[in-house]
Design a protein around this nucleic acid. Structure first.
Length: 587
RNA sequence: GCCCUCGUAGCUCAAUGGACAGAGCACCGGACUUCUAAUCCGAUGGUUGUGGGUUCGAAUCCCACCGAGGGCGCCA
């Protein structure tokens, strides 16, 4: 946003340093942290420390001296109102009128593209969500879905070409159990609505039956053998019921506004994985211990010559020859690079419990000589637990189903909409309630560090107050409301004059940070950064809203404020879009 | 036993190695004849788990310890 200005000033600083025989320094810019003061700053502590060359001295004082020297040596650059040396920092204040006009104009010209970087011509893939077919979808599963979706949005905005990949678990023991239960007790039945809930309830029923009567495991094993031998009835049933689950997921993703470019299915990689393992055995990377009743393993630490245990041992094929998760992951990783050979990075958005597993898989691929192996990266996140640190598990019955949460959240939001906006059409109210309800669900999962556990409880999940999506949406609605009441086209670009209030400056300051915040969020893979920005924007706008009359203001202030409101509305909308949260027109 | 996360206000969480560690919730006190009060303003609240170290400067980096959670050859 201010690269040109920064480069010019950097040149001047370096010139000063040369003429005064001070060492070169790397100049890092930061925002001036004081509220209502808009500008950029850099500090000279490092340089000051260097001038003492290890001897003792007052670094802070020297830094201030240098900053003062620079402040008096370089003229105030165009567009700046003040240059100041303070506590070792050099602060350059923007001339608010000039830059407010520039930023506002840029936002209004770029609209939804404001904040987006130019295309980098680099491709990355995010694999996320990976739901299990034939099972329920609970709140714990949402974190990967939201994280992956928003990371994709942020990376896209930061200039990357993003492939959004899903990897449904459409085969495995859980599916076999489901099929057994279905064929035995529910043959011919099909789901009417709430497909995913229905699939999940049949799975729970299967598990319950097997718990109550372990002898039935034999029947499950028979089903598994039938599956393995491609028994037509079992295979057909799998194909059909699998589609039901996928249909259910499709509805759910549509509701959550999550899209995928590419589907990889677990069932596609059993055979491919086994072939890769055979290759690993042939090349002496994997050890086949099946003759002694063991499995096929890769002794990673030994292969790497490590003394201490780090990567341990990876089982790549079961003793009975069947594939397991690791087998399939080897083939999946390769497939991604076969499909997209130019992939700069292949991200796996999977919970933290699988950290070691992915390290093992990636390291195995590296040892096997695949040059892309080092481009694979596990993006881990902590779980969503229930109060008392209870893990959500369908087996334990400790789950909150997505369907239930969605229904409750939208119902609660609908209640409020009816109260606040009784005149809106019912259709409109429902639309708003869904935007608010879903936003309220997404925000808390995105607005904390991914390494921290999210504790789900109904009370805070349905609390729309405070640091939450509805607060941000409401700021958007307020801006929208002013612009609707304007009843005329938006005024042409105007200079707001020198008398901008603190709240106006604070607002435009935040808007101007958007492009760099997006870059930061993409670099750190942190949606939280965007959550913070969105919330700060909303807060600054609410402050502006109470401080500064717009429609009743005198010209030219009125025009300038109207344009600022439009820019703020756009910035808030863009930040919400990055979070996959809908900005409603009214609330 | 080894490895990985996390520990900040009563609670939930922020804070590119940098300026006085900030919000929300809760609690207390205020503000709607005004562009939507799903809002705003004010008050209270801290030895950033403990002890060392690195650095001009540490909540942030390193080491040790304490506490919580997770992972560790045939689950996904």
């Amino acid at each position: 946003m201010f690269e040109l200005e920064q480069a010019l000033i950097e040149e001047k600083i370096n010139q000063y340093l040369r003429t005064t025989n001070l060492p070169e320094m790397e100049i890092r810019w930061a925002w001036i942290p004081f509220n209502g003061q808009w500008g950029i700053s850099t500090s000279f502590f490092q340089l000051a420390a260097k001038t003492f060359a290890g001897e003792k001295g007052n670094v802070a004082q020297r830094a201030t001296e240098i900053a003062q020297g620079i402040a008096s040596a370089i003229k105030i650059p165009d567009g700046f109102s003040k240059i100041e040396a303070l506590n070792g920092y050099l602060n350059l204040f923007f001339s608010p009128s000039i830059y407010t006009q520039r930023i506002v104009d840029e936002v209004l010209e770029k609209e939804s593209n404001f904040g987006r970087n130019e295309r980098l011509g680099k491709r990355v893939m995010f694999e996320f969500s990976h739901p299990n077919t034939h099972k329920a979808f609970h709140v714990g599963h949402l974190r990967s879905a939201f994280l992956g979706d928003v990371l994709s949005r942020i990376s896209d905005a930061a200039g990357y070409d993003v492939i959004r990949a899903n990897y449904p678990g459409d085969i495995g023991m859980h599916v076999i159990k489901w099929l057994w239960n279905y064929l035995k007790f529910h043959k011919g039945e099909r789901p009417e609505k709430d497909i995913t809930r229905w699939m999940g309830s049949l799975y729970a029923e299967a598990v319950k039956r097997l718990d109550e009567n372990p002898d039935l495991e034999n029947e499950v094993k028979e089903t598994y053998i039938k599956w393995d031998q491609k028994d037509p009835e079992v295979v057909e049933c799998w194909k059909e019921t699998r589609e039901w689950s996928l249909e259910g997921f499709k509805e759910m993703y549509a509701k959550l506004d999550i899209k995928f470019d590419k589907y990889y299915f677990n069932s596609m990689f059993e055979d491919l994985g086994k072939e890769m393992v055979d290759d690993l055995i042939a090349r002496g990377i994997a050890q086949d211990e099946r003759a002694e009743g063991g499995a096929v393993i890769v002794k990673l630490d030994e292969k790497l010559g490590l003394k201490d245990e780090k990567y341990r041992v990876l089982v790549v094929r079961r003793s009975d020859g069947t594939a397991l998760y690791a087998t399939e992951d080897l083939a999946l990783a390769r497939q991604k690079f076969l499909d997209y050979s130019d992939l700069e990075r292949s991200y796996y958005v999977v919970d933290v419990r699988q950290s070691l597993h992915f390290q093992q898989v990636f390291k195995t691929l590296e040892i096997a000589g695949y040059d892309w192996a080092t481009r694979c990266q596990h993006v881990s996140y902590e779980l969503v637990n229930l109060p008392g640190n209870v893990v959500m598990a369908s087996r334990e019955g400790t789950v909150v189903l997505l369907e239930d949460l969605l229904r409750e959240a939208t119902a609660r939001a609908l209640e409020v909409v009816r109260e606040k906006n009784p005149d809106l059409s019912e259709e409109n109210k429902i639309e708003i309630a869904e935007a608010v309800g879903i936003g309220a669900i997404k925000f808390p999962m995105l607005s904390r560090e991914s390494g921290k556990i999210v504790t789900f409880d109904w009370e805070s999940a349905l609390d729309f107050n405070g640091q939450a999506a509805p607060y941000i949406q409401y700021a958007y609605v307020r801006a929208n409301s002013i612009l609707k009441k304007m009843n005329s086209p938006l005024p042409e670009s105007v200079n707001p004059g020198e008398k901008l209030t603190q709240s106006e400056i604070a607002l435009i300051d935040l808007i101007s940070r958007m492009p760099s915040e997006i870059q930061k969020a993409a670099k750190d893979l942190k949606p939280l950064t965007i959550c913070n920005l969105a919330y700060e924007l909303a807060r600054a706008f609410n402050d502006f809203y109470t401080q500064c009359p717009v429609l009743s203001a005198e010209e030219p202030i009125r025009s300038a404020r109207l344009r600022l409101v439009a820019a703020a509305r756009q910035a808030i909308a863009n930040s919400l879009a990055l979070l996959g949260i809908t900005a409603p027109q009214a609330m």
